[in-house]
Amino acid sequence: MSGVTLALDLLLGLSLVWLAWRTLASPTLFGAIVLFIAFGLLMALVWARLDAPDIALAEAAVGAGLTGVLLLAALADLQQGDNLLPVREPLRGWLLQLILALCALGLFTLLTLALLGLPSPPPSLAGQVLPRLDGAGASHPVTAVLLDFRAWDTLLEIAVLLLAVVAAWSLGSHPHPNPRIVGSEVLQGLVRVLLPFAVLSAGYLVWRGGFAPGGAFQAGTVLAAAGILLLLSGLGRPFNGRHWLWRALLASGLFIFTGVALGTLLLGGGALDYPAGLGYGLILAIELGLTLTIGLTFIALYAGEQDAAEERE
């Protein structure tokens, strides 16, 4: 290992720990959010270092982008008017502090001992996955695991996504985080230029997902980013949840996925056992459906549902 690589590894690791600490200890919430976004960027670099480009893509889209924007939107809402939340004082009392510090230290020691004592060479499923890639619907190993070998996990993950929207809407409509937004020509111009690029990139990522890092989730997040930009610039309007078509679109990814699962079951093959030769096509169909759903889901979670009545105001 060259000296520069070693320095890079040490620097990445140490700054990650430092950044986590500063994020969580930040005196202001705004500072904590900005640092958390930076934390996402460093995580993306670490994923790149660990040969995990799929995760680096997801982290760049989610950790450094989407979660940060969701946090900022929530903060903007929280800070309107007086506060607001039933926030208790930070933990007081040296005894509690001591116990807590010991717990954290204990967790670190426990994990370190466990990690250092793991068997070598490590048991792994890589030997199971790679020889079966020919029979799977995707040649990129991670996509094959996500949408074929362990597609059941992914189906339920999409259920979690839809559940998050249903849960958020069940709380009632919430208005756009910054009602004072007025159209800015510079911003709208920028968004008009960026939008086609975002859609193009999303398409590119889905297409690549079959044989290289990328896929529906990353692509969907890029679409969501484009949608949120539209809302932020005042060019777009939030959902009208009263219209069933929006709800159907939000659920479409789950409908497609469960449809494929039940279809394969009813055809006698067993759930999610793609018929020979159809695997690639079915996976592509699922991926396209998921991209749209994931994009809409995150926009819905950002903007919330708008009652028709509220929209008219």
Binding site: T67, A126, V129, A144, L146, R150, D153, H174, L301
Partner: peptide, 25 residues
């Protein structure tokens, strides 16, 4: 490299962001 943990982490990220988003709402 073992792709199974990679897939697990991708699923985990989606679940985490869904839960966070709902928590914020």
């Amino acid at each position: 490299p073992d792709p199974v943990p990679h897939a697990m982490v991708l699923t985990g990220i989606v679940v985490a962001v869904s839960a966070t988003a709902f928590g914020l709402v």
